[in-house]
Design a protein around this nucleic acid. Structure first.
Length: 577
DNA sequence: GCCGTTTTCGGCCCGACTGTTTTCAGTCG
């Protein structure tokens, strides 16, 4: 039985306990354990054999026994018993916004509703409004929500879609009179690659004006809630936008509060409480006091609890508190640290702009170097370069470099990894390139062993420097390749090859968690590239850097923060080996 | 059900919004 299966069972137990209205703390204990197990990198089975289950946070005697039971028998008696007492199909009703365990239980007991279909029928027959505490609005909400759930199963949007939309709202709201400040918060500020909604905070003395503006905004399709301090709307893009207003003196504590994550805050409040402080969105209050400590920035909130500032990207309760308490937080990579982009396409293959145009755009960004890495010959659909055209391109780049010294243009190629693991050009051609990127563009539905062998063969090629978009996933559209990443990471480490964080808004591959593993567990150098096919997409470097920051990466772990000279050493060293 | 620099019991984060009420419970983030 896998970690994930056990996590699912614990999560189901939590829901069933909640529906039974058992202690919310017990429910929380199961939820927390499910989350811990889901994100665990070690196998539960081996931890069990070593007797180390109770060393996991939130796993005590009882839960470790249940894990052992599941691992040895494949079942858990407690879970089975719960399923007999509570219909599992009631769980799906919890997905309806506005319905929690209390309401679901009430509906189940009084109306004998067991699943979503029966709920819909009961609502249509106007039976819901006969229950105590429920009226016609609740009934309507249920019907509307079921309709929505039927329509869109997946409701997360990529950061690259959410961020521009968030800025559109933010810029409009910040221009209003009496608005002193505004910011993006929530998971978007933490840099998550997919977000469920957009959270905005506005500091103002006129919250009513802000609310009216939000509700009337041209992007708004539907109003979800509208209160004195908080409004929520559904945009035409299907993304929910929540706007919270606070008075200007509460801006920083509210910004911190709304940035989350929930789990990070729970730890903060626990710690604050142990120091005799209460933390909420309005400030930090010494026990019994109505007056907040002075807060002039988020730093002050952490300082009050005796730890250094924790950047938003780390606020996931994934080790940042432990690191902060040890004063061992990483000094995260900044966008300004990036000195160049090593994966660019031009009109020579399937890009839009010429080498000159891409180079000019890079100069405007203050880069020291770029690599032109057009597609290789077998990728006909992308107008891949023949050997002759590649050499012609190299000659042109050499000439351009001789005419201008401010930006070094490296010659390169994004070489396809062919079906048998060979690269798309012979070694003597690859040797002539300053930068060789290897990537899989075909046959990504092959079985794991074959795909892994292909990527391994590429990593073993002495002229390859970088493996691009290593998992091949496309956000919301294509799952990662079925590839053995542990083997790739081992080999990349042994061969001294770099792995890419591809910043393109629909890739972000490696993702934050994998980049963190590659860099910390395997000490693999990471390179952050845009894979831009036109000048505007050079700006997507920001998304790659955010992803790297969420993966705890420092400047030292990232190849393209190196100076021209240092980069040259890195590229040459690989080739000599 | 877990946990401990207030330690083996008694806590466990905190507040806003909605819908239904006439002061609040349930839900959500």
């Amino acid at each position: 039985m896998t970690n994930l299966e056990i996590a699912w069972i614990f999560s189901e137990i939590a829901d069933l306990l909640e529906l039974k209205e058992e202690s919310s703390f017990k429910v929380r204990a199961y939820r927390k354990a499910a989350k811990t197990i889901k994100h665990l990198s070690d196998d539960l089975g081996s931890l069990w054999k070593k007797g180390k289950l109770t060393e996991l946070p939130g796993i005590g005697k009882n839960l470790s026994d249940k894990i052992a039971e599941l691992l040895s028998t494949g079942q858990c008696a407690f879970h089975q018993r719960l399923k007999e007492e509570v219909p599992v199909t009631l769980r799906e009703l919890l997905a309806i916004p506005g319905l929690g365990s209390k309401s679901v239980r009430l509906i189940h007991e009084r109306l004998h509703v067991n699943n979503m279909e029966e709920l819909e029928a009961a609502a249509k027959e106007k039976k819901i409004r006969t229950l105590p505490g429920m009226g016609s609005k609740t009934e309507l909400n249920i019907l509307r929500s079921i309709e929505m759930l039927k329509q869109n199963a997946q409701s997360e949007v990529p950061i690259g879609v959410a961020l521009p939309l968030a800025n559109l709202f933010l810029n409009d709201l910040k221009r209003l009179p009496e608005v002193t400040d505004g910011a993006i918060c929530g998971s978007l500020r933490r840099g998550k690659e997919l977000v469920k909604d957009i959270d905005l905070l506005i500091a103002t003395r006129n919250p009513d004006l802000v609310r009216q503006t939000v509700l009337k905004h041209p992007q708004v399709k539907d109003i979800i809630t509208s209160g004195n301090e908080k409004s929520a709307v559904l945009t035409w893009l299907g993304v929910k936008v929540e706007v919270r207003t606070v008075s200007p003196d509460q801006f920083w504590s509210a910004l911190h509060h709304l940035t989350g994550s929930k789990e990070h805050h729970e730890r903060l409040r626990q710690r604050a409480r142990s120091l005799g402080l209460k933390v909420n969105e309005y400030g930090i209050f010494p026990e019994g006091s109505e007056v907040s400590l002075e807060i002039k920035g988020e730093e002050d909130i952490y300082r009050a609890t005796g730890v250094p500032y924790i950047p938003p990207e780390l606020r996931e309760d994934s080790g940042e508190w432990e690191a902060a308490l040890e004063n061992d937080l990483p000094r995260l990579l900044e966008l300004e640290d990036i000195k160049g982009d090593l994966h660019l396409h031009t009109s020579w293959s399937d890009g839009i702009h010429s080498i000159e145009e891409m180079a000019d755009a890079a100069r405007r960004k203050g880069y020291e170097y770029i690599a032109i890495t057009d597609h290789s010959r077998s990728l006909g659909i992308a107008n891949g370069l023949s050997i002759e055209r590649l050499q012609e391109q190299h000659a042109l780049i050499k000439q351009m470099n001789s005419q201008s010294a401010d930006l070094k243009i490296l010659t390169g190629v994004e070489a396809d990894i062919l079906q048998d693991g060979r690269l798309d050009y012979p070694d003597e051609i690859l040797e002539q390139c300053d930068v060789v990127i290897a990537s899989i563009h075909t046959g990504f539905r092959q079985e794991m062993e074959k795909l892994t062998l292909r990527a391994e063969a590429a990593l073993k090629n002495p002229y390859v420097h970088i493996l691009a978009h290593p998992t091949g996933r496309i956000l919301g559209r294509r799952k990662p390749y079925d590839i053995d990443l542990d083997r790739l990471f081992q080999l990349a480490k042994a061969e001294g090859k770099a792995l890419e964080i591809n910043s393109s808004i629909d890739r972000l591959d490696l993702n934050a968690a994998l980049a963190r593993r590659a860099a910390y567990e395997f000490e693999i150098p990471i390179v952050i590239n845009t894979d831009a096919h036109d000048v505007s997409r050079l700006e997507e470097m920001a998304y790659g850097v955010t992803t790297a920051r969420r993966g705890w990466l420092t400047k030292e772990q990232v190849v393209n923060t190196k100076s021209k000279l240092e980069l040259d050493k890195f590229l040459k060293r690989r080739r000599i080996e």
